[in-house]
Amino acid sequence: MIKRELKINLKSFLIWELILIGMFLIVYLIYPYIITDETMKSMDELMGIFPEEVLKTFNMDMSSIATAYGWLKTEGFMFVLLIVGIYSSLLGGNIVLKEENDKTIEFLATLPIKRSKILVNKMIVSMIYIFSMVLLLGIFNYIALTISGDFDQKQFLLLSITPLMIGLPFFAINLLISTFMHKTKKVVGISLGMVFISYFLNICSELSSKVEFLKYFSIYTLADTRNVISEIRINPIIIIISIVITIVFIISSYIRYQKKEFI
């Protein structure tokens, strides 16, 4: 079953992975040509116009975009977090529910296999793909950055791990939601909405101290990229919260799936 699940989910994994790698590849290829002393000067002037809060949102207050690595730490990683968030959410919302949506669950659930095993097998495959997405992108970036110039390896390694802090909770939350649904159509909207609202709340929370509390309602707070860039460490509390959220929602999905009716 795991082999089949890996096979049918490979295509969407490759598409999302290629979007990420493709974007970085383009940036690495064109960066040496677009970043010159002159463009940097006009860029600095442009940055001066923006308030500090806006620059903070993209980590531009603490990192320069004069190099490819600098760009990766700012806009680049925002994009990675968004893509990994979308991919993990969609995977969580679809991987189990697709069987019901396509009505193949009647075939699968009447075979000699426990419901719990169906769920666990699908979760294993999802974890393999979420980790692979982060790992492959990390390897690609490592090779590209090694070729293009100096970079802080430890900082890069920690930064590369941060998408997992949001990817796993997004997956687990959407997995639980999917156990209450019968059609994937509704879940896709919820999954995407959750990612974008969460991303938006995180950005808002950084714009003003008055709305800083919004960060508690955003999964993206768990990405903690600012701390990784400035302190070169991931806050252990963030790791614990991310793991706890993931485990709680996975256990809830497990319990709920045992009782689910395949209508």
Partner: peptide, 16 residues
């Protein structure tokens, strides 16, 4: 699982 290995099922609507 042991009992399910002994049951064959043909649904009215086949979805494979």
């Amino acid at each position: 699982i042991e009992i399910k290995q002994k049951i064959g099922y043909l649904p009215s609507e086949i979805n494979l």
